[in-house]
Design a protein around this nucleic acid. Structure first.
Lengths: 347, 347
DNA sequence: CGAGCCTCTGTGAACGTTCCCAGAGTAAAC
DNA sequence: GTTTACTCTGGGAACGTTCACAGAGGCTCG
């Protein structure tokens, strides 16, 4: 239970803010009608509307959110739960873009986005409590994992929500995602089309749908040519996984001539190891990544990769929550957005 | 004026949340005393406190923020105004770390951080209006520029605020920053100590304190050896500025053997150009950056740079706002935090 | 011309807190 | 034994909105 630093005296210093009563008095229109104007409701005469709008401008009226929330039993706020260790939040440009897309849609609809970042189990419980407390009308949850207390709270309370990337153990909650399998299959096919015959993969995060499905797409694309010996896997989508993975792949098959990296960061690590080993890219080895993050253009040669529609993911998730708030039934199951291959010079 | 999608029926579906009245009824203690317990006020008997706490647990009571805000005339929310074009928000790891530091301090003090990202002039006016509207009790403003309407609104209203990085035209507002001049001077000195004789700088953002002061520090470190011909400047802290700048410097003096880049991104661009020009790093040319961003470790060889205490910046700014809310007078002027040199392999 | 419907308006009540005041009880001081 | 001070409690009033209801006035239709 939080403590507050003693009783604060009722504000005497700051000037009193104008209320709806002031607007009513100045305009000579009743409080009820002022409220109707404010909320764009029908059944307001042109005359009244103009008088009210002038009065609002004159007294500098701004609506008191707290009073409105109190009576409507709503907060007009939606939580964006970012469910990653801090380091990853900062590294992954997709998260930033999702955030911006969400923010755009919500502020357009006059909802306030409240960003909640969690790092530890303790944070997770606190946020679950926050959701239960009715501080927000809905929630957008980024990259939850199986067994997540937040997903649990959402399912229990039935509050409007949308997941970006679906936790594997709650398939009935609404989510937005990309078709990782199809995208991985597509880019692998295109890599094969450059004439490579010994193609491997540095997989990652197999405990998540994204990691799991990218591997599945790769496998599907290779068909009979699939060689499990040319797949290595590491827990995290990061540079060092790429470096370690590439060293291992070169050890297993020095003649490897194509690599699908499960993320751009991994691809960057792999490329540096390849260069140190004296391989030319793309002449000796072709390499492709996934995400179209800032890594992709930083690599030399520039990386061919799969573009995630991160902004659209954020927008659609926000829209899904707004739809539920408007009374639509929550869609059970997910919506997968299309990706795009960005073909550059690395393969 | 926003429109709302018709009158929502007064919630009949969701179960009614427990109120302070329920707690009072269950515990047999009056509403007034329950409120005192909730707020940790003195003059509550042990007996009453225990009864109330049990009742709270029993009925699952969570305080209604809207009602509290309405009567206290406070929102218990603090705005974090991120004042950058989107691309930079995503690129600059310092911003993410500042955000995390701020969030940590505020949530510890039971304040909600509301992140407002602005991209355009229009956003800027909207946020100024938001601040005026009393939706937040205070604000933390990141990297405002001169003539900013938000800085203006803050100065006019006198709401508790703290700037991270100070706008040059409002020197009396409280701010937190780093000592760019001293840091730049320090790292330049250290670069000179590696025996370089022809040292240049790729400067940037001279319209901001950070850019301006880094150049000043560089100049001071070189003293009599300063050669204005070896300084180039570009508006933005970005990779392409480094690439362009390095080409220009090489043109002006092919024998240049040291470079201070005003940011890590700039350094990365410069390094790639140097490599293409056949220069070895650090043997032929030593290079240092600024920020200790993710760029620094991505470079090869790893970049020597200045570490910004971004987390601490965020924490101190938050603390400054909380102090003002607690009634302390706003400090006029700024507080500069120390930086640290991270010496790696690029010089 | 009266009934019925639509448009528009004003007002009372409620939302769930905190603040303030009055007062009861107990202990300490005179 | 009376005053004074302190601790603790209960309940009225207020915060600024929205919602529901009642009702006035005008128009249309039978």
């Amino acid at each position: 239970m939080p403590r507050y630093s003693g009783a604060m005296p009722r504000d005497s210093s700051r000037p009193r803010r104008a209320t709806i009563h002031d607007v009513a008095a100045v305009s000579g229109i009743s409080r009820g009608t002022v409220s109707r104007v404010l909320n764009g409701e029908p059944y307001v005469s042109e005359h009244a509307r103009i008088a009210v709008e002038q009065a609002i401008a004159q007294v500098g009226y701004v609506r008191n959110t707290a009073a409105r929330n109190l009576v409507t039993q709503r907060s007009r706020a939606i939580a964006l739960v970012v469910h990653e260790p801090h380091s990853l939040v900062l590294e992954d440009p997709n998260i930033g873009n999702i955030l911006l897309g969400t923010n755009a849609v919500l502020s357009e609809a006059d909802y306030q986005m409240v960003t909640l970042i969690l790092d530890s189990q303790r944070d997770s419980d606190r946020v679950a409590e926050y959701l239960r407390g009715g501080f927000v009308d809905g929630a957008i949850i980024l990259s939850a994992r199986a067994g997540d207390p937040i997903a649990l709270a959402v399912a229990q309370l039935g509050i409007p929500a949308s997941f970006v990337g679906h936790p594997t153990d709650t398939p009935d909650l609404p989510y937005i995602g990309i078709n990782n399998t199809a995208a991985a299959e597509q880019i692998t096919r295109r890599l094969l089309a450059t004439g490579r015959t010994r193609v491997g993969m540095i997989a990652s995060a197999l405990d998540r749908d994204s990691g799991h499905d990218r591997l599945a797409g790769f496998t599907a694309a290779l068909g009979d040519a699939f060689d499990p010996n040319l797949v290595v896997s590491y827990p995290l989508y990061q540079y060092s996984s790429g470096a370690d993975g590439m060293r291992e792949l070169l050890r297993r098959d020095p003649n490897i001539d194509g690599v699908f990296a499960a993320s751009d960061a991994i691809a960057a690590g792999a490329m540096d190891v390849l260069k140190q080993a004296g391989r030319r890219i793309p002449e000796d080895v072709g390499i492709v990544g996934f995400d179209d993050s800032t890594w992709a253009l930083r690599c030399f040669p520039a990386l061919s990769t799969v573009r995630q529609p991160a902004d659209a993911l954020g927008r659609r998730a926000a829209q899904q929550v707004l739809d539920q708030l408007a009374g639509e039934k929550a869609p059970s199951g997910g919506l997968l957005l299309d990706t795009e291959i960005v073909w550059r010079d690395s393969a």
